[in-house]
């Protein structure tokens, strides 16, 4: 008893913070693993539509992305408010040619055996009309890039009941 009393007489014990770095490191590693770096500058506003029958794009290196949406505020003076197509970090001017070039550029980075597995992800804003999407689809078909993924976010309030 006297042993305990002695301690209580001292000032309040300090909480050990030596494990704090470990905790933080754990969080750090978690975020490092799940991080997907933002690639380049997004010049169009895109809010993808919602859907339920989604398939995850597994291999990032086999995916190229086409953005469709209204130019962001900064570019509206130059490019107007009509939906535009963004490839890499540029607006496409001549769709068929630019998309073919964009696909060829991406193919250079991919192993030749895997060219057939390349997927084009169309990230289009929910508010655009089908006209521009159809033009992109036609350009992709002309460039013989037939595997396409319409990017969408999971729909929470109408989940799939059948599966």
């Amino acid at each position: 008893m006297s042993h305990f009393k002695k301690k209580r007489g001292n000032s309040t014990p300090k909480i050990s913070t030596s494990s704090l770095p470990d905790i933080i490191f754990m969080l750090l590693f978690f975020f490092m693993v799940v991080t997907v770096m933002r690639e380049g500058e997004r010049k169009v506003q895109v809010t993808v539509p919602q859907a339920t029958q989604l398939i995850k794009l597994e291999k990032k290196s086999l995916v190229n992305t086409v953005y469709i949406g209204k130019p962001i505020k900064k570019y509206q003076e130059i490019y107007g408010t009509q939906p535009r197509v963004q490839l890499d970090d540029k607006f496409a001017k001549n769709l068929d040619g630019d998309i073919a070039l964009f696909l060829e550029k991406h193919k250079l980075k991919v192993n030749e055996q895997l060219h057939g597995a390349i997927i084009t992800s169309i990230k289009a804003d929910a508010g655009v009309t089908m006209g521009i999407v159809t033009d992109v689809k036609t350009a992709l078909r002309k460039a013989n890039q037939l595997k396409v993924n319409y990017s969408a976010s999971p729909n929470t309030d109408r989940m799939n009941t059948g599966l």
Partner: peptide, 12 residues
């Protein structure tokens, strides 16, 4: 991660 509806387009 990127998710979406997979579609196979017909050849042109």
């Amino acid at each position: 991660a990127d998710k979406g509806i997979m579609v196979q387009l017909p050849p042109w």
